[in-house]
Amino acid sequence: MKGLQLRGINKTYGNVKAVEDVSQEIHSGEFFTLLGPSGCGKTTLLRMIAGLELQDSGTIILEGEEITALPAIRRQINTVFQSYALFPHLNIFENVAFGLRSRKVPGPEVDKRVKKTLEMLELGQMTKRFPHQLSGGQNQRVALARALVNEPKVLLLDEPMSALDAKLRAQVQVELRRLQQKLGQTFILVTHDQDEALVVSDRIAVMKDGKIIQFGTPVEVYESPKNKFVAEFLGTANLIEGTYHDGQFHTELGIFELEKPPSWKKGLIAIRPEWIRISDTKPDKNGIRATVTEMIYRGTNLDLWLSPGPIRLRTSTYKNIQIGDQVWLDMAPKEIAVLNE
């Protein structure tokens, strides 16, 4: 069997349940992301996969082989640490060669593989320099090279971009995605940044309090969040409370039609600010009359706050709008996500 399987993983520190009953399948060659707020147990789970932390219970299976009881040095898994953890006294070449030298790979092959990896990450010119002579972004690539050169079966990345500035981060995310697709290797990334998760991942697992509460493709988790937490953690969402009866959803804002009837009588629906359309005329279905109370100009778009609600709306087309204007909001049934939990 290919890929990585986690089965019933538990880890407790004192009375903190850091990871609770996590079972997850990670396919071979996919970019899998563990997304969640700080302290939800992402790092702990990653460290257990790396073999740097021992789980209280559960099994880890890598390519059909159980590795639960193997220490880090015997797992074909490498990690890019959050702080990069480069060896400060070794130059870039030796840092990258470290894993190969540990495994006594013959010199000429070390040379070849290190050079190739450094070239691939555009570090070919830096081999003789030391980590403290490089920028944060370059050091991050060195850390990546140091792990990748070992051709791990799974590459683990613990918030590798948290030390980069916003602009560089956005660029590195795209590069990381391309690199993973080119190599076709299994990557598991830990992050608390939802944008990052959406950009790089094949699949995302959203974690909260040590548990995985939803997983799926970026489109699935963004467009069909299971509950309030996922809806709000991935981007922003207008949450509307109400009851469902007579084939319609009744709320304080008005009556809505849904695409599918929900599984509950009383509950929440979510609609993202950019899914609401704004118009001067009453839409066919789910039209709401609202007043603009606040406008935030963001360059690429305009954020509006409207009452009643307050409802948040994001538009990039509608320019001639002013505070106090009355508008129609179009919340088409297909744009509404029903939260089933």
Binding site: N78, A85, F87
Partner: peptide, 15 residues
Amino acid sequence: LDWTLVEAAQDLYAS
């Protein structure tokens, strides 16, 4: 001591 360096070494198969 920064123990992550020790972990990094171990992660990279160091004796």
